[in-house]
Amino acid sequence: MAVIEVDGLTKRFAGLTAVDHVTFTVERGRVVGFLGPNGAGKTTTLRMLLGLVTPTSGTATINGRRYTDLVDPLHVVGAALESSLAYPGRSARNHLRIAAFVGGAAPERVDEVLDVVDLTEAADRRVGQFSLGMRQRLALATALVCDPEILVLDEPANGLDPEGVHWLRTLLRRLAGEGRTVLVSSHILAEVAQTVDSVVILDRGRLVTESTLADLTGGTHAVRVRTPRAADLADLLTVQGASATVIATDRVEITGATTEQIGTVAAEHAIPIFETTTEAPDLEDIFLRLTANAERTEVTS
């Protein structure tokens, strides 16, 4: 069941169409990456979904209702938007107390979410002294404080160091494991690829694709095998319908066969295998190709 439905959403600013008839859905319990280069219209789309920006046309609903019609919205959707910063003179704890209070969450939630985002020690420092990474964590804590079923996160990895990005991935997986629906935007596909079930890609305000990650990368997996009988293995696999190329005397690259199939064939013919590596699809390459082509290709929506 779709919890988020965006239908023909359009936003025109003076002379500029920031979002152009964007349509997509997010199913319950899924983690969806909302991707696109900077300026693609991701933030504007999310802000329309959240009732902060009024669409020129089209609709965006959450559980079948517009955000502005939700009862207790913070319990339904938790949002961490780039600029939803706290008043700089206020401590992180007081900022969260306000968020918990206005949403009607128990005061204990403040300490719980501070712990979730690793900000317990900095809780009583003023937000004005926070680094960008700490602000991102605080924004996440704010989104989580009312324990919402849906999370909308706008570029949560911005400003995080590699350790922070790893931490974020773990957190997103954990949130998804709790059955929450997550819509997370990013301008770097690789940043969210390990976490998301599917992606919605936007470029220059238009929808480029809405697909599962597997479909996006489908068919591009290659397996490299190191074996002293590279040519023999290549021949055998070619007979079986795979595409195999000997790339060195002891190396063969295969597409169209799984590692299981390759291993089985090798064992049947007593071919020793020293090493098997699966080449990950080049996500950045796919992403760049999709967003670069958007200008020329007519986009389905």
């Binding site: 959240l50 009732g51 902060l52 919205p73 949002a79 600029s83 939803s84 910063l85 706290a86 206005v102």
Partner: peptide
């Protein structure tokens, strides 16, 4: 000034 309006209106869209 401090962009805290976002949180305010997320909590109370009216």
């Amino acid at each position: 000034r401090h962009s805290t309006a976002t949180l305010t209106y997320l909590a109370t869209p009216r």
